[in-house]
């Protein structure tokens, strides 16, 4: 079985490490990291991902713009996207979901919630 490729787009090294540390507990996953939206897009154009997790508030390009651009790309219309953010307002949630995010998780993250969401979107039993 081919490993599942996951991309974490997050400007905070602390959060990148925590998310990566948590998701590495899933079986057979390969995790890549990006510092911001632009870095994320570069990595997405260079390979096919099974799951993308992105923060909203990032320098250069924010997560909302990134979600929008990913969905405009014919090759990535279906890739599951999880937004992980400090923004807990309903408006932010609705905006992200309407642009094509599959799930919206607020910080501080809970590993049970994160692993459950990732498993569901990756189709891992």
């Amino acid at each position: 079985m081919a490993s599942k490729k996951i991309l974490i787009v997050e400007d905070s090294p602390t959060m990148r490490q925590l998310i990566s540390f948590t998701l590495k507990r899933l079986p057979d996953v390969e995790i890549l990291e990006a510092n911001d939206g632009v870095d994320g897009l570069k990595k997405i154009s260079g390979g096919k991902f099974d799951l993308i997790l992105t923060d909203i508030n990032m320098p250069i390009m924010d997560g909302i713009k990134l979600v929008s651009l990913i969905r405009q790309d014919a090759n990535n219309k279906e890739v599951p996207i999880v937004v992980i953010t400090t923004e807990g307002g309903q408006e932010d949630r609705d905006r992200a979901m309407s642009l094509g995010a599959n799930s919206y998780i607020t910080k501080p993250i809970n590993s049970v919630n994160l692993i459950g969401t990732a498993k569901e979107l990756l189709g891992i039993a």
Binding site: T14, Q17, L18, F21, N110, S111, V112, I115
Partner: peptide, 20 residues
């Protein structure tokens, strides 16, 4: 399972915070 996961979560947070 939830207790263990919570403990894992706590340890991961503490480890990452300390490491960083």
């Amino acid at each position: 399972y939830i207790d263990i996961e919570t403990e894992n979560n706590n340890l991961a947070n503490l480890y990452v915070a300390s490491y960083q």
